[in-house]
Amino acid sequence: MGFSARALTAAIVLGLIFALFAAVFMAQFLPLEKPLHRTFWAGLSVPITWAWASLWLFSRERFSRGAWILLSVACGLLLLAIGGMQL
């Protein structure tokens, strides 16, 4: 199977969206009293979640273009919605 720059970009972008999505939940719902602590825990989680999610996604044998687009849009919208609620 040849190299697909699109699959690589999609895996990295989607991995980032997953990681930010998880981090937003951590920043909001971690049972810690100080928002500063939630901020740092959420921030620290991003590189690890991002690396794991991108690697997992890029290792998939089959992942149709439609699924990439659907998942990207869904995660993006969720992220925007959560961010919007906070603002």
Partner: peptide
């Protein structure tokens, strides 16, 4: 990754954590 990205990520997370 932390040194490169944590600045911008912290800003985003702080916006959520501080409502």
């Amino acid at each position: 990754a932390l040194l490169g990205l944590l600045g911008v990520i912290l800003i985003m997370m702080a916006l959520v954590a501080y409502g």
